[in-house]
Computed example of a mutant assay.
Amino acid sequence: MGIKKKERSRNLAAGRPPTLQRPKSISRKATKALINSHHILGKRKAQALAKGNHAEVAAINAEISALGGLERYQQASLQGQRIDRGGDSSRVLMEWLNPVQSMLKDLPNGPLRMLEVGALSTTNQCSKSGVFAMHRIDLNSQGEGILQQDFMERPLPKDDSERIDIISLSLVLNFVPDAHVRGRMLQRTLEFLKEPNRHANPELNEFFPSLFLVLPAPCVTNSRYMDETRLEAIMVALGYVKVKSKMTQRLVYYLWAKKTAACDTAFAKTQVRTGTARNNFSIVLRV
């Protein structure tokens, strides 16, 4: 499956606001309401930008300012990472990797490389585990150890020494404002991951190379255009196999291992559910 290196329909920052490092405390209810409001406004803004409707963009910007601006959103984003709110999503990943963590600490060629896209912190569980050489990027980094970079513009690896063993897209894909760009982002992960079955230990080959994907649960439980069956079909077409999954009331977690070459299968925006209370999350793949 060919991927154009410079193809890009719009700035991803239109979908995912930046983050701050040290938020003030916000209640659980206020956190959820604020994040949901910004998410909706971000989608509306991206649509208005695509249409060139500058008046609507200005009106949406005013609504964002009335909510306290992006700074308030940033506080809510990091508040959700606190241990008393369930902690960061990488805790689930490290629990899944527990059977092979001892193997990861003594690899002959050094630690595996992990790329965390949309990194909020340098002190989450995957960072503190000591089993990965961490590479962290974010659209609007405001902390040391996190490179300010757009994943869609990240230079492609020159050789295997620059390729990645595991990529984390935790609550990133849902903030991309366009279904086609979401598809290209998933396709682009393949360009960075190492080839499968490169480890002498078959247990490591089961888990790596891989993609850790976290989405809000309604993206697959309440979307007109996406459910778990369709998401798995898209990932299988890309050459991924589901290793682990977990669903909570708020989030759905997946670990997808890269196993085969991607096939030339296109996925359009196709309705899988009816109902007026559905959201419009979708992923479009072009061959």
Rank of each mutant, 00 (worst) to 15 (best):
M1Q: 04
S9W: 06
A14D: 08
G15E: 02
G15L: 02
P18S: 12
P18G: 15
T19E: 07
T19Q: 15
L20T: 05
Q21C: 06
I26R: 12
K29E: 13
A30T: 08
T31D: 03
N36H: 06
K43H: 03
K43T: 00
A48H: 03
G52Q: 03
H54Y: 05
A59L: 10
I60K: 06
E63W: 01
G69Q: 01
L70P: 00
L70Y: 09
Y73P: 12
Y73W: 15
Q75E: 15
Q75H: 15
Q75P: 01
A76V: 05
S77C: 09
I83V: 11
G86P: 07
D88G: 06
R91S: 15
M94I: 13
E95K: 15
E95S: 14
W96Y: 04
P99G: 08
Q101I: 14
L104S: 10
L104K: 13
L104E: 07
P108C: 09
L112I: 00
S121Q: 13
S129P: 07
S129V: 06
G130Q: 06
N140W: 02
Q142T: 11
G143Y: 02
I146Y: 07
L147G: 00
Q148R: 13
M152W: 00
L156R: 13
I166S: 07
I167D: 04
V172P: 08
F175D: 02
P177C: 13
A179G: 03
H180T: 07
R184T: 06
R184I: 04
M185P: 07
L190N: 08
L193H: 07
K194G: 13
E195M: 12
P196V: 09
A200N: 11
A200R: 10
E203P: 00
P209S: 03
L211W: 12
L213I: 08
P216S: 10
P216M: 11
P216L: 10
P218E: 08
C219I: 00
R230F: 03
R230W: 02
E232M: 07
A233F: 01
M235E: 02
M235S: 03
V236L: 05
A237L: 02
Y240C: 05
V241D: 14
V243E: 10
K244D: 03
K246G: 09
Q249I: 04
L251T: 04
V252P: 03
A257S: 15
T260W: 01
A261G: 10
D264Q: 10
T265W: 00
F267L: 01
G275K: 05
R278C: 12
N279T: 04
N280I: 02
F281C: 06
I283P: 01
V284P: 05
